[in-house]
């Protein structure tokens, strides 16, 4: 971990901090359903950013296609429930697997042909538009609704408090996956690919294969989150394949700092909450204030603080060490 050192005790500590923070939030919200829904959305969004960290932060591939995978996973899970009666508790794995399959189909030629940097970013951005257009043809412009049933096997509850808890569990699982990657061979390999792909190849790393692994893990997690996203949004349509949401995920990841789990969480939670606040307070008079904020922060970070929030955390850490 960038901020807290590398020992496993410290990681346990960090998880504990995240868990306590997550547990405290609902107490503060005190049963206000709107805020609870908001909190659940923000936590789910943070999980997406943490998942993005695998492909964007560790492997350094600027993926702008998050909602292609969120959409595929979410819609497959929902359709499996609606059409085949498969409960989402199982269905989310099918949804995740469907996203993963898409990732493999896209990823193999993409990495095989050495597509990276701006071209990778464009390709993944285009992927979202392709899915958006094609699913519009297949699904029409209609909004679809989930069956009214609730319960744990449907991962769906009327209480937003419970939905918030589910989102929190997903966040913690995503963090755990990141930690596992970071501390194992794959994490080291991905980071070296991010730093210098050719040099990585020259120490025997099959860079294509490892980039594909990163894309697979990322897409699986997003696919699983897709269904929860639908439950929180209360409906789904082709509009789930949304370019600007996909972009936001990457933006939060960059602002958080590449490869930094806590940076990603902080940036997603702060920016997304602020964004929601702007949207609810000024949305009718000054629409887009939230995105304007993201834009300004992004420019400032890009020019003055390219290592994002993680860079700031790092500096504070160093300063504290010196004092001691």
């Amino acid at each position: 971990m960038v901020a807290f050192g590398t020992g496993s005790k410290k990681i346990a500590l960090e998880l504990l901090v995240i868990a306590i923070l997550l547990a405290v939030i609902p107490l503060v919200l005190m049963g206000n359903a709107y805020y609870e829904l908001l909190a659940a959305t923000v936590v789910l969004f943070s999980s997406m950013v943490v998942a993005w960290n695998i492909i964007g932060g560790y492997a350094g591939q600027l993926d702008l296609g998050a909602f292609a995978y969120v959409g595929v996973g979410g819609i497959i899970t929902s359709e499996l429930w609606i059409k085949a009666g498969i409960p989402p508790l199982l269905g989310i794995f099918a949804g995740g697997a469907a996203s993963l399959l898409i990732a493999v189909i896209i990823g193999i030629p993409t990495f095989r042909f050495g597509i990276k940097e701006v071209w990778y970013a464009l390709l993944t951005a285009a992927l979202v538009v392709i899915f958006n257009n094609l699913s519009r043809v297949l699904m029409g412009p209609t909004d679809y609704y989930l069956p009214p049933k609730t319960g744990i096997i449907y991962l769906k509850f009327n209480s937003y408090e419970i939905m918030y808890a589910i989102a929190s569990v997903i966040l913690i699982l995503t963090v755990l996956a990141n930690l596992a990657i970071e501390r194992s061979k794959i994490g080291y390999y991905l980071k070296s690919i991010r730093e210098d792909e050719l040099a990585a190849e020259m120490i025997g790393i099959d860079t294509r294969r490892y980039k594909l692994y990163a894309l697979m893990i990322y897409s699986f997690f997003l696919g699983v989150m897709g269904y929860i996203y639908i439950v929180l949004a209360a409906s789904f349509s082709y509009r789930m394949f949304d370019s600007s949401s996909s972009l936001s995920i990457a933006i939060m990841g960059i602002i958080g700092g590449l490869g930094s789990i806590e940076g990603g969480i902080v940036s997603a939670m702060v920016l997304r909450s602020l964004g929601e606040y702007f949207r609810s307070s000024f949305g009718s008079t000054v629409p887009g204030l939230d995105l304007l904020l993201y834009g300004i922060v992004l420019v400032i970070v890009g020019i003055f603080q390219p290592e994002g929030i993680a860079g700031i955390i790092n500096r504070i850490n160093k300063a504290m060490k010196k004092k001691r």
């Binding site: 701006v118 590449l258 887009g288 304007l292 834009g295 922060v297 992004l298 420019v299 390219p306």
Partner: peptide
């Protein structure tokens, strides 16, 4: 700088322009 930083800054500029226009 790295492509990612350039993309970040220009995406930021794009968002600023878009949302000023929207406002």
């Amino acid at each position: 700088k790295e492509p990612l930083i350039q993309i970040a800054v220009t995406v930021g500029l794009g968002l600023i322009l878009q949302n000023i226009a929207l406002a």
